[in-house]
Design a protein around this nucleic acid. Structure first.
Lengths: 154, 154
DNA sequence: ATTTATGCAAAAACTTTGCATCCAG
DNA sequence: CTGGATGCAAAGTTTTTGCATAAAT
């Protein structure tokens, strides 16, 4: 009775660029659009991307605008965005915890040579072969990270 | 040209219980069996499990033996064990970085209600459907975490 | 005016580094 | 002795908390 049909297409993140849209976007998700939050969202939702809390902090505080934000606020705001469903937190590996603008069901490829992270379509995962699942358990989510290396043409 | 055949059976971790075996086990893997390392290994390889650095520290320093170990040594030792291939570090989710005694290829089920983590057989993952992979890239590893909830019988 | 929410300094938790000490040759 | 390895205090990072302030009712 367990199974996730993972046959969607890869959908892009919700992107918003101008101040106006960012405010409505936040409001629509029950988030009061304060100065700090708009500043953080501006950088985060500029494009489909995976950023660390630290990268966001740097960008917000070096974009030339008056608005600077503390580290605590960046963490608390990103956590708020996650809990309101407009961001997803991803552990690409134990050393890289990132915030992903794409909250749709998808997986990740990490190129270990370039450090590049790409979203990939959810692939079909045959869970019927799974032996370690209790019948009383329901699948909530499936996180898949594929680590690759660029061929050195050997 | 990418493909990992994931049809092995679920193999248990290498377990060692007595002082003697732990020393040889460490030596065999190029790790000098010092007091601190044996203490840490004793608790880690006691059974097939997933433990945080902090949990190991607690156990080592409260088992009644004379040997206590600093936090730094626990971190450095676990990192050493990982680099020597006798432990695997797993990001079950962004909040849970754990050390896994099972270094064989396998995946994880996290029961979000009980917090229990179980190893599962590597399942067949059809990577031929993958569209986001460059032909110049080779798969290095595949990490899969399935989050489940206990049915509330609703 | 009272209540609720917000931002951040400070605290806590986590991880790494640099060096004094130990140990093998 | 000497050179490399080891353990850990201290430093550096990351994340959370508690509270002063701000906004809303």
């Amino acid at each position: 009775m367990h199974g996730i049909e993972a046959t969607h297409h890869l959908r892009p993140a919700t992107l918003v660029s101008d101040q106006e849209s960012i405010c409505s976007f936040l409001s629509e998700h029950g988030i009061k659009p304060t100065r700090q939050r708009v500043a953080i969202a501006t950088h985060m939702f500029e494009k489909d991307q995976h950023l660390s809390a630290d990268a966001i902090l740097d960008r917000v505080n070096s974009d030339g605008s008056i608005t600077t934000v503390s580290k605590a606020t960046v963490y608390n705001t990103l956590k708020l965005f996650v809990s309101e469903g407009i961001l997803r937190e991803v552990a690409i590996d134990p050393q890289r915890i990132l915030f992903d603008t794409n909250t749709h069901h998808h997986h990740h490829v990490l190129n270990m040579d370039t450090g590049e992270i790409r979203d990939i379509n959810p692939v079909d995962i045959d869970l019927t072969k799974l032996t370690g699942l209790n019948s009383s358990e329901t699948i909530d989510s499936v996180d898949l990270v594929i680590k690759v290396r660029s061929n050195k043409d050997q």
